[in-house]
Design a protein around this nucleic acid. Structure first.
Length: 563
RNA sequence: GUCCCCGUAGUUCAAUGGAUAGAACACUAGCCUUCUAAGCUGGAUAUCGAGGUCCGAUUCCUCGCGGGGACACCA
């Protein structure tokens, strides 16, 4: 990596243990790479930053470093700007080319177990667009960590044991009594749920029935358990389709019910360690600085999701030997998770392990109000994905009618889903997203299909010519050097994401790469270039194509050969 | 009321404390008998307000305004 190489050179030249950071400036008049290390040293050394910068520049103008750079400039108020020599760039390109899309991937395993908690759908409720974010952000992080050589465990923490099952079972039994049930689907269940909840407001008796049903379920009542399993099956049947469409996979799908047996011990452990106390009849853990305690057992003896969450952490640390647990969960759970993290540390369940809340914004209505599943106003994820595929198909029909039907369908799926995923992954996960069909299904400009289209066109060129060897000495245009520099960035972008957990850096990078590439082959013919140049350009295009494909796949997006 | 997050172009989004704040959409002027026009090349427009720290602030701190979220037995 050029960046680390410069950092090493600088480290030697500076001879100080200050953290050296090299970045790619936005404007190339400031070099291929740049550093502000002299500015940072100025205060410590009590010397003008320009003077320090000049000294560093001089130190780098001897020996091997001299050959590495084409030019080094010092710019006010103390930046040092680097231009890499073309020979180095060409060498670098040949290395990238040889790795054939695997570049940026760590060959060595990193001995760190990363557990990623994502998706977290609820049983007996249709998956909504809100779950989309967790699922695709989580999957992208999963892919990226794996690519970097970490041991990754993906766990879909299903919501399958909550209070809502009391309502669901009550509503189900009621409907069954009225013989309104035939083939029950997830939508039917949702209807029953919404209907029952609405009536509960004016009819307290219904609420009591629901409470009774949940108590029965949790104490192992046979019939309620059977009904609960039925809900499970109905949900999974539909989830399977969505997971297929989204191309997500989990190593584990341990729901809340899985931890049910452990809850009692969690509470007694907390009490034994004198972390939990009784307050207002409930068992709670007080967290310094929080007005409201973390409740782990209700006054009626029932456990809560807080209890389950503690059990889950414990399980992950013990069984998965987690060094790091990443919770890909919405912003609205910030308070709960910070309490959880504090609680498990207090209890000694977690010591040096990392617990991180990979938070993301809500998907809001156009009027910036929360999309609520409870109010029944949900937008089902499946309908969104299907709509995306339909729109993609229409465009394919228009743009590329010669493809056969099977191909069209396959591509429509790849492109439609890609558009939806990219739309999400290209944004900073922390901000709220205004739900907007046209934007989410955008097929132009900074979009998934734009990247896929670029890839397909590159592949189309590559299909038309085969080449065995190339010589990078034929790459001399400025845009070719720019492309090599851009390719070079890939691996540091991936690296960055394993530190800050922001997949949109990758999306942003890929868009930049695709844009530059489109611009390149618009102005520089590949197949019609003269011998020598042609092969070198084909190699360049191939490296870009492989990088695009790898990058898209890391985001969970497929790259079609044709579109 | 307390706490957390957010406020960037008409719209939707970028910007590890860095240099002239980037894109995309929309609008607009061009480019298909050269590799797929889902493309390429141009054009106009923005940091909520007031202070502060810093060589340098969209970013950090304080206050105000506006939006969202969470806040004892829901998940």
């Amino acid at each position: 990596m050029i960046k680390t190489k410069i950092e090493n050179y600088l480290g030697k030249a500076v001879g100080n243990d200050i953290k050296i950071e090299v970045f790619v400036p936005e404007n190339e008049q400031f070099g291929h790479y740049s550093t502000s290390v002299a500015l940072k040293l100025a205060k410590e050394l009590k010397k003008p930053s320009m003077e320090i910068a000049e000294e560093i520049k001089t130190a780098l103008s001897y020996g091997i470093a001299k050959k590495y750079f084409k030019k080094i400039e010092v710019a006010a108020p103390g930046f040092i700007n680097f231009w890499i020599s073309e020979k180095v760039l060409k060498n670098e390109f040949e290395n990238i080319y040889k790795l054939n899309g695997k570049w940026g991937k760590n060959k060595n395993k990193i001995k760190k177990n990363v557990v990623i908690d994502y998706c977290g759908v609820n049983i007996a409720k249709p998956m909504s667009v809100g779950h989309l974010r967790s699922t695709i952000i989580g999957q992208a992080l999963y892919n990226i960590f794996k690519f970097k050589g970490y041991k990754v465990i993906g766990d879909n923490h299903l919501g399958d044991w909550g209070k809502q099952f009391g309502v669901l079972i009550a509503a189900y039994k009621e409907a069954r009594k009225n013989k309104k049930l035939k083939d029950i689907s997830l939508d039917n269940l949702m209807e029953l749920y919404v209907n029952y909840t609405a009536r509960m407001k004016n009819n307290l008796e219904l609420g009591d029935i629901a409470k009774e049903e949940i108590k029965k379920l949790q104490s192992g009542d046979g019939e309620n358990l059977r009904i609960w399993k039925k809900f499970h099956n109905i949900t999974f049947k539909e989830l399977k389709n969505i997971f297929n469409l989204l191309d997500v996979e989990f190593d584990y799908q341990l729901g809340e019910s899985f931890y049910n047996q452990m809850l009692k011990d969690v509470v007694s452990e907390a009490l034994r360690k004198k972390i939990a106390v009784k307050s207002e009849g409930a068992m709670v853990i007080f967290i310094e600085g929080d007005e409201i305690p973390f409740i782990i057992q209700k006054s009626d003896g029932a456990y809560l999701y807080a209890t389950t969450d503690i059990a889950t952490v414990k399980y992950r640390v013990k069984k998965f030997r987690a060094d790091s647990i990443l919770y890909v969960v919405g912003n609205e759970q910030t308070f709960h998770l910070s309490q959880l993290f504090n609680a498990v540390r207090k209890m000694g369940i977690v010591k040096n392990q990392e617990l991180a809340h990979i938070k993301f914004g809500l998907i809001l209505n156009e009027d910036m109000k929360k999309l609520s599943t409870r109010a029944g106003k949900h937008i089902s994820l499946e309908s969104l994905l299907k709509e995306a595929i339909i729109r993609a198909k229409k465009i394919i029909e228009e743009k590329n009618p010669n493809l056969n039907l099977k191909e069209k369908e396959k591509i429509a799926k790849i492109v439609g889903i890609g558009a939806v995923k990219y739309n999400d992954l290209s944004q900073n996960r922390q901000s709220d997203i205004a739900f907007n069909w046209d934007k989410m299904l955008n097929f132009e400009g900074n979009s998934g299909p734009y990247l896929q289209y670029t890839y397909a066109r590159l592949k189309s060129i590559l299909r038309k010519s085969d080449f065995k060897k190339f010589d990078s000495k034929y790459l001399n245009k400025k845009i070719e050097m720019d492309l090599i520099l851009k390719l070079e960035e890939f691996s540091s972008v991936i690296e960055k994401i394993t530190i800050n957990y922001f997949p949109h850096y990758l999306a942003d990078y890929l868009f930049g790469l695709a844009k530059l590439t489109n611009s390149f082959y618009q102005s520089s013919p590949v197949l019609k270039a003269e011998k020598g140049i042609k092969e070198a350009r084909l190699a360049l295009i191939k490296a870009v194509a492989e990088t695009l494909k790898t990058g898209l796949n890391l985001l969970g997006i497929k790259a079609p050969e044709k579109m």
